[in-house]
């Protein structure tokens, strides 16, 4: 995690410093917008840096397998993450959003259709994620899950995805 948070910290500090220098020398009132945007960048990246640093400290600075120069495939054994199968909900949600915003041009009824589709898709997406955690396991997966200390189900939100 070290390289990650340091990179983001660098970006944040660069934007902060640029904002200070630019703000000190700007000579036209409208240039305040540029200073604001640079400051926004400083805070936005700062937020991300703070999160990454927090994760790093919470892990007691122990490097993950992908941070270690000598790690082998064996170190990455176990769950990598939750990779859902094909799903219709993203397309439905996208269609809902597109119809919804086109409604800003062509009338409210368009937006209402889009909104219904959008929230329906949100609901479908959520229930799909719920259902996925209760998929019956094959025998091989049962073994892996038991070995990982979670007999009987696949962890949809493994903690080491941070």
């Amino acid at each position: 995690m070290k390289v990650e948070w340091r990179t983001v910290l660098g970006a944040s500090l660069f934007l902060g410093a640029t904002a200070l220098v630019y703000g000190a020398y700007k000579n036209h009132p409208v240039e305040a917008s540029g200073v604001t945007m640079l400051a926004f960048g400083f805070f936005a990246y700062g937020l991300l840096f703070g999160y990454l640093l927090l994760v790093y400290l919470r892990r007691d600075r122990i490097p993950r397998p992908e941070d270690r120069f000598d790690a082998t495939s064996a170190d990455g054994e176990g769950e990598v993450g939750y990779f859902p199968n094909a799903s219709i909900w993203p397309a439905a949600m996208g269609l809902g959003m597109i119809i919804g915003v086109v409604g800003f041009i062509y009338g409210l009824w368009f937006t209402i259709i889009g909104g219904v589709l959008f929230f329906g898709a949100v609901f479908g997406w959520m229930t799909e994620a719920e259902a996925a955690t209760e998929v019956p396991l094959t025998e091989d997966e049962e073994d892996t899950a038991t070995a990982a200390g979670h007999p009987g189900h696949i962890d949809a939100h493994p903690e080491h995805i941070d």
């Binding site: 082998t72 495939s73 054994e77 990598v80 199968n85 094909a86 219709i88 998929v135």
Partner: peptide
């Protein structure tokens, strides 16, 4: 060495359905 991972099992769609729904 094999990398283990868990995926949600199920049949994989093809054709147009694959284009629309694939993750």
């Amino acid at each position: 060495e094999p990398v283990l991972m868990e995926i949600v099992p199920g049949p994989r769609p093809r054709g147009l359905v694959k284009y629309i729904t694939s993750t």
